[in-house]
Design a protein around this nucleic acid. Structure first.
Lengths: 234, 234
DNA sequence: GAATCAAGTTTATCTGACAATCTGCCAATG
DNA sequence: CATTGGCAGATTGTCAGATAAACTTGATTC
């Protein structure tokens, strides 16, 4: 395989340059972009081709276009990403062990921050426990997965490190598959682990909480289908 | 607020229906779709509008279009998914301290992985030291920043946790402005810290390495411009 | 049988046009 | 004076038609 010759798709190039433009100018959501006509002229392409580029970015909400108003900068809609990509079979190609390792790094890494903020704001612990309580009343897999995701997201959120929330949202997309293969018998184990983690944090036993969380996340590794079988195909 | 009428964008609707079509027909990557003309006719819209819909899905690789071949179902381009998080709302609203905290969590989090792999592969340490040596020969800020970024990226890369590489690349963009205010007098301090970290890892003293790295990254905090002045604007 | 060439298919891009929708201004109204 | 209503301009949404570029396929040639 040589260098994978970048098939010069015009609209793709333009989409990249548009993204770069937004970053370079330091624009934030709501800020206005030049009109389609102006952008097309400045890129030296037809308005139609530029339009296809904005459509690409627009699908995920990175740019928004409204008649009469013009183009504005938006923020990515992870729900779109999740919905469009969730059904796709080849997400399993993502190396499961890397995903698990990454989650462990991020989630255990925030624990000191969470513990510190928990001391000053008791409502953090309450919210975490409340979400976990809801988890006990889940009666189908979809709901269970939804709430499990919410618990872990809330944990990250409680650290105050907002960028990590963004990363977690992306990881969640790739992780969904693992979660959906959780056996019902394992539910209570997970819920119990959640509670122990929260209480350990509450008591300031950060190392203990880290160890619980690591074990909890790594339990997914047992459900990874052996990929030896896959290699045989073609 | 009444119900917020969701303006139905034609190409968005078509994109959803196209996705549904793929799911319903049970198509997998490589399978062929009808031609643009046929799809446009069956949806009762112009070829152009359909094209904008395929461009939307094409951004993430869900469908691919090649001249002469037609439309085919593609595989999700994870690079696109991860790169797009630069526009995640929670990342856009992140303040400098969160960015610094996030880097500390990620970079210290990978250290155990790096140390483990370093034991099996001596070239990892060599590459890190080589990059750091180059850093000493930097004679202007641009080059210094470039090499500093490369060192930290290499550190993450050495952990083998590929998702984190994508995340740090995004963080780098947001971090650049801190780096660019580094005084020349501080350069050698940073280079020295890099070396100490690598050596600590080499000797398996992970906690020491973590502490050095934390201090090193948090040194950026001193250069944060007080944001009281900013609030006054506008 | 393998390589070469030509015709057909399909997407890529452009030009030009009109419709739909929003913004901002200004006059009419109470 | 404040509110409403409407008009003009600006901007995106959609369409039709045409040409170029890239690929596929099958026939031809050696």
């Amino acid at each position: 395989m040589i260098e994978s010759i970048g098939k010069a798709r015009l609209s793709d190039i333009v989409a990249d340059r548009l993204k770069q433009y937004i970053v370079d100018e330091g624009l934030s959501p709501g800020d206005r972009l030049p009109t389609e006509g102006q952008l097309a002229a400045s890129f030296g392409i037809s308005r139609l081709s530029l339009r296809e580029a904005t459509k690409s970015l627009g699908f995920l909400g990175i740019v928004e276009a409204r008649p009469g108003r013009g183009l504005t900068v938006g923020s990515v809609r992870m729900d779109r990403v999740t919905r469009v990509i969730g059904f796709h079979p080849d997400l399993l190609k993502a190396d499961p062990l890397s995903l698990i390792g990454t989650r462990v790094v991020i989630e255990t890494g925030v624990l000191p921050h969470v513990a510190r903020r928990m001391r000053d704001d008791p409502s953090i612990r309450e919210r975490l426990l409340a979400t976990n309580a809801e988890l006990e009343s889940a009666d189908n897999l979809t709901r269970f997965v939804e709430l499990d995701i919410r618990f872990h997201r809330l944990l990250i959120e409680s650290s105050g490190l907002t960028p990590l929330i963004a990363f977690t949202d992306v990881l969640t997309v790739f992780f969904r598959r693992f979660r959906e293969s959780v056996k019902k018998a394992e539910w209570s184990t997970g819920i119990q682990a959640h509670n122990q983690i929260v209480e350990a944090l509450h008591e300031g036993r950060i190392d203990a909480a880290s160890e619980l969380l690591r074990t909890h996340i790594e339990s997914h590794a047992r459900r990874i289908p052996s990929n030896k079988a896959e290699k045989r195909e073609k």
